[in-house]
Design a binder for these strands. Sequence first.
DNA 1: TAACATTCCGCGC
DNA 2: GCGCGGAATGTTA
Length: 174
Amino acid sequence: MKFSAITVDVTSLGINTPDGFFTAHYSKRGLARLDFPNAIGEKSRRESNGRPVSAEMQAWHKMTTRAVREVLAGGTHGELPPLDLSAGTEFQQSVWNALRKIARGRTKSYGEVAAVIGRPKALRAVGGACGANPIPLLVPCHRVLAANHKLGGFSGGLDWKRKLLGREGLEFFE
DNA sequence: TAACATTCCGCGC
DNA sequence: GCGCGGAATGTTA
């Protein structure tokens, strides 16, 4: 089931946090992507395209900003803007949906997540879906560990995963 | 077809 | 217990 990429104009807005400058991308449907500060050429960090941002989008960005800061501080995020997950396949969306149900400070293994969505043997694919997750932090892909309670991997860098888990109170990973 | 952010089993240490 | 090698596994580009 594929959906060839439609071109949707997205607006990029920055989020300044004690941990760096995140970038949020919004489509008409909601928050479509969230980028870590990290990284490689720190791509485009331009704020919107010069054009005024709609009131609705400003409201979304306000929620996103607050949510990101709260998560970084180790708390629970409050209200979130609508998430635009239309970029993912159905399988990926069901995985991301399952991830959102993991409470703060809790973890699941890739196998458990696979079982939750009714495909116990697709555990390997769950890993792939996590890697494709466009909205880390808000979709807590960092709470998924390997079965033996090992870290597994993380797109944004394993140090992030450790840091986030540590701030949620899992002292094991400090 | 060839990757994988997996997991399980059997080794040897 | 820990680490390594190898095999089976579902989804994706």
